[in-house]
């Protein structure tokens, strides 16, 4: 569904990605692991077009979308849950969600999407009128994910959804990501929380200094010596 080949990108003159190949199959959860500064966020932003790719190719459903601006990619069915949530704190949950269905493609299905989102996150329906800024970190992360779903995407890129959350809440967040997969969505996840993310994933990549150091099924990743030492720590 999503195929990234030889992607190079960076900021100004500083190159961050040095030819990254990633492939995401429809209906799976793929996790990208790696230490700080490996280029995980840059990879997601370059795929989405928020950071312009320098070289390489991004294909979505067989179509070359490398240099499309982000809003066009959203129209095509891609979306990104930004690191740090980026919600509208002074608006209510429902206002945040409805704004999430901005594109024509999403607007047509707005009531359907809202129903799906409330079914996935019943707590958001209870809190529909509450201002997002007054909610807990975990609930806000739910809103962020829910808002992305409102764009009616086929693939959701997620940048560290567990960041800054208590371990118990982290588990909840990963449970909901698994539920999204069951709804037929494809997920590309970037995480520092190695264990929890691999538990729900089908495939994994390990990014190191802007290059893919390792890739494979989750079992292969977990069993590999290097990962155990470097990232899992067992």
């Amino acid at each position: 569904m999503l195929k990234v080949t030889g992607l190079e990108s960076g900021y100004g003159t500083m190159q961050v990605l040095w030819g990254v190949d990633v492939e995401v199959e429809k209906g799976t959860i793929t996790t990208i692991l790696g230490p700080n500064g490996a280029g995980k966020t840059t990879l997601l932003k370059s795929i989405m077009g928020i950071v312009s790719p320098w070289k390489g190719k991004v294909e979505f459903n067989g179509e070359d979308v490398t240099y499309l601006p982000p809003h066009r990619k959203v129209e095509k069915g891609m979306t990104l849950v930004l690191e740090g949530r980026h919600l509208f704190p002074y608006m209510s949950v429902e206002e945040n969600l409805r704004l999430g269905a901005y594109t024509k493609r999403a607007e047509e299905k707005i009531e359907e999407s809202l129903e799906l989102v409330y079914q996935l996150f019943p707590v958001l329906e209870e809190r529909a009128k509450q201002k997002v800024g007054t909610m807990s970190g975990g609930e806000q992360q739910m809103v962020a994910i829910a808002r992305a779903i409102m764009a009616s995407p086929e693939i959701v890129l997620m940048d560290e959804p567990s960041q800054g959350l208590a371990p118990k809440i982290v588990a909840e967040v990963f449970d909901t990501i698994l539920k999204l997969k069951e709804e037929g969505l494809t997920i590309l996840l970037v995480e520092q929380n190695v264990y929890a993310s691999l538990e729900i994933s089908d495939y994994g990549y390990v990014l190191h200094e802007g290059m893919v150091a390792l890739k494979g099924t989750v079992d292969e990743i977990i069993e590999s010596e290097e990962v155990r030492k470097a990232y899992v720590g067992v």
């Binding site: 809003h71 980026h86 704004l99 594109t103």
Partner: peptide, 22 residues
């Protein structure tokens, strides 16, 4: 108006929501 509201509150969020911010 909705697009501008999103841009004013958080331009990065507006972009990933599919708004042509420019």
């Amino acid at each position: 108006g909705y697009a501008l509201m999103a841009i004013r509150e958080d331009e990065d969020a507006a972009r990933v929501m599919g708004i042509n911010v420019t």
